[in-house]
Design a protein around this nucleic acid. Structure first.
Length: 258
DNA sequence: ATGGCCATCGCGGATGGA
């Protein structure tokens, strides 16, 4: 079983790249973030032709998430139950049957803009809402994967310039507290299971030739519930699509479970 | 030293991203 997450920064622009990537990487489930389109504009047919079922939770211009899968999703939930939100940020589905089924949460965490801003406060409230819901979801669905664009780094290993970016957005203690609190629910950071190769990032600014200089952040993560921990066979960031013409600023993260 | 990009909406330049 292969799963992946990718913030594609506009599905309208990046659809050909997603289709190319799926052809080269025929994962079982792909979570997409930042579709930036409404449900009626979602290219269901193009994905169907590529052999994928779609579950879309779109929004015009901003946000928007989807789950693509080889087999249809069951029990689909949009956004965080119990947390009122105007934005389309989370989509959840169950894949597979019975004992071996997997609950997959695809999420686009708020950016937060700047510590102290209204957007930062929203990010903190959203993180609390997510955790409260996940705590219950893990009881009913012990085999759970939470993947997406978290917009939070775990620690200095995830930051190209930890000193220069200390306390800035994605790197604050408050954000990291909430990320550790998700781990404390009984989840594991898949990439770190294998020891993180130095300078492993999933996002690079479009400016300053940041990708070429590997000036990035690791903010896209795949967390697995602890019952799945021993099933994780690999986890890696695929930098190849970042080398495309007109790339997304994020790279996909891929996990293999046996 | 600073900020240098990209997508959207919509036709200029603001807003948001990270």
């Amino acid at each position: 079983m292969k799963l992946a997450t990718w913030n594609i920064n506009s599905l309208t622009v990046r659809l050909p790249q997603v289709l190319d990537w799926l052809k080269a990487n025929p994962v079982d489930v792909l979570a997409l973030q930042e579709l930036k389109l409404s449900d009626d504009m979602f290219p269901t047919e193009a994905f169907a032709e590529a052999g994928y079922h779609s579950q879309c939770f779109g929004q015009k211009t901003y946000n928007g998430v989807a789950l693509l899968s080889r087999t249809p999703a069951a029990d689909v939930v949009k956004n965080i139950p119990g947390f009122d939100d105007d934005m389309a940020r989370v989509i959840t589905g169950t894949f597979g049957e019975g004992e071996s089924s997997l609950r997959v949460v695809g999420a686009y965490f708020p950016n937060g803009q700047e510590p102290g801003s209204d957007k930062f406060e929203y990010k903190m409230e959203w993180l609390k809402g997510l955790r409260a819901w996940l705590k219950k979801e893990l009881v009913t669905h012990p085999r759970l994967v939470l993947m997406g664009d978290y917009n939070i780094t775990f620690d200095d290993l995830d930051v190209w310039d930890p000193i220069g970016l200390q306390g800035s957005i994605h790197c604050t203690d408050e954000e990291r507290y909430h990320l550790r609190a998700l781990i404390a629910l009984g989840m594991t950071d898949s990439l770190r299971l294998f020891g993180q190769p130095p300078q492993s990032f999933s996002w690079w600014d479009y400016r300053n030739m940041a990708f070429r200089r590997n000036r990035g952040l690791r903010i896209d993560h795949i967390l697995v519930s602890n019952v799945l921990k021993d099933r994780v066979k690999s986890c890696a960031i695929d930098k190849a699509p970042r080398k495309n013409e007109r790339p997304s600023d994020h790279a996909p993260v891929v996990i293999t479970l046996d």
